[in-house]
Amino acid sequence: MTIDPRAAGQLVDACAAAIVVLGVGLAATRSIGRAIWLVALQSALTGVAAISVGLATGAGHLVVGGLLAVGAKGVVVPFVLGSILRRSPVRQERHPLLGPRASLVTAVAIVFVASAAANGALVGASVAAGRSLPAAIATVLTGLLIIMTRRKALSLVVGLLAFENGIALTAFALTYGMPLVVELGILFDLLIAVVVAWVYARRMLDVLGSTSTDELRSLRG
């Protein structure tokens, strides 16, 4: 099965745009449950972008990597995170360091800065960088914003996943993805990282009675 390269290009652009919008949505939501599904959708779209280019160019490894990404990050990961959320008494990010409105404004500002920076950074570079690079940089930075301003363990994992989606999109924008064996390794690492995060979130619930990282402030000096 192949698709027309122009249609694939438009599909990739649409995916990149949607990934950015989902990132802004992640920054603006307080509900952890909603954040899990937003980031899952974002992950799935990075996979869809890879699949569509793979089908257009006949690069089989992109299709395989994209399908696995959709399955692992779009389906398995949100179910794992959802199962912690169901046990946790806290479903909302109550007191983030930046409120939803301030986060929304910051995230939008990040998108503009990223577009400007991406256009500036690649002047003179030898690669034919794709149009999705600004979206990729914006997603990386939005992920970091979420990690820095949230306090609940699950929100941090969500931020980490958004950060990782940004890196995946960067890979795609710069080189149409890494070699398949490397992509598989990265995906495998991501899956076990989420499982380990799950283990620790459960231990936090058992030992500390909450998944708020505010409880984790004893080690100093």
Binding site: I167, M178, A193, Y200, L216, R217, L219
Partner: peptide, 29 residues
């Protein structure tokens, strides 16, 4: 599984993952 050990492991996992994410960007570039 003491609170201090869980805190250390959580910091290690999150900070380590962010850091190693940058190394992936470097590899990619």
């Amino acid at each position: 599984r003491t609170p201090a050990a869980i805190e250390a492991a959580w910091k290690y996992l999150i900070l380590g993952s962010i850091g190693i994410g940058f190394a992936l960007l470097g590899t990619l570039l």
